[in-house]
Write a protein that binds this DNA or RNA. Structure first.
Lengths: 128, 128
DNA sequence: GACAGTAGGTACCTACAGGAAAGTGAGCCT
DNA sequence: AGGCTCACTTTCCTGTAGGTACCTACTGTC
C-alpha cells in the first residue's frame, strides 16, 4: 500500500474507487471470471457463457478490458474469422481479489437475513 | 419471471456477481470506505467528505446499506436531529477485501500505461 | 420574524447505458 | 447461387439512475 502523494481526488474520498471503476464496472466481473476460471475463450463462447449479455455490450467491455491491459485479444485472419480472448498477467493478478470475494459470499445469507429483518421491522412501527 | 430453475443463475456465469452487486454498487465504495477508515459519521459529514454525491443519492445508498446490514443507523431524537452512521460487524468483515483492493492500486499506472499503448497502437495501423 | 442548521422527502427532468434487430464481409459447403 | 458461420458494427429506442430544486419540522439566535 504505497501512500500516494498529496490528496488524491478529494471528491472520491476513497483511494480504491479507481480500482473499482476498472475491475468492477458493469459486466466486467463475469467476463474476467470466465477468462480466469476457464481459460481462453472465443467471442461466441463468452456470449454463450454469459447468456444475458448482448454482442454489442460484450464487444464494448472486451475492448475496454483489452485497453486496460486486463485481457489479451488475438485475431486469427482465417476464413471464418477467429478471435481469442485470454486473461493477461495483470488480469491474473486479480485472482486473490476474486478469491476473497468468493470467500465473502458465505455472508450472502447474512445479508438476505438482514434484508428480511429490515423489511419486517419497517412494516410494523413507524420509521423515525 | 419467477422461474424456479435448477441451476443457480446460468446467466451470471460467475458466483461473485451477487457480492459485487451488494458491495460495489454505485457510491457504496466511498461510503463504506469512509465509515470503515474514519469511524462514525453524521449525514452531513459524509456529504462533505464525498463532495460529489447529492443528498438524495446519499440517502438512497445509506438506506440500501442499512438494509443489507452493512451499516448501522442511529437516530437521536434531539432538537436539531442527529443521525449517526457506523459500519456494522458484517461491514467490517469487508476490510481485508478493501485492503486487497488498495494493494492492487499499485497497478493503476500499469493500467494507465496499457491505455496509452493501446491508444498509440490504435492510431497508426488499421485495426484488424 | 427571519434565518440557519439537521436529516432528509418529493417532484420533475435529463443523459446515457444498455437492449433489439438487422447488416457486413469473406469464404467454404452443397 | 443461396446459406452458413464468425465477429462484430450500426441504428434506433427505452429505462432508469442520478441531478436540480424545493419542501418539511423543530428550535435557538439575531
Amino acid at each position: 500500500m504505497t501512500e500516494t502523494t498529496a490528496e488524491v481526488a478529494p471528491e472520491l474520498a476513497c483511494p480504491i474507487a479507481p480500482v473499482v471503476d476498472i475491475v468492477f464496472s458493469r459486466w466486467t466481473t463475469p467476463i474476467l471470471w470466465s477468462l480466469n476460471e476457464y481459460g481462453r475463450h472465443r467471442f461466441v463462447e463468452l456470449e454463450r457463457r454469459i447468456t444475458t449479455i448482448t454482442p454489442k455490450v460484450l464487444t464494448q467491455r472486451l475492448r475496454q478490458l483489452e485497453r486496460d491491459g486486463l485481457v489479451v485479444r488475438t485475431y486469427h485472419p482465417e476464413v471464418p474469422p477467429r478471435v481469442e480472448y485470454e486473461i493477461s498477467a495483470l488480469g491474473r493478478s486479480l485472482a486473490p481479489l476474486f478469491a476473497a470475494l468468493a470467500e465473502w459470499s458465505v455472508n450472502l445469507d447474512v445479508v438476505e437475513q438482514a434484508r428480511q429483518d429490515y423489511d419486517a421491522r419497517d412494516r410494523a412501527p413507524h420509521r423515525t
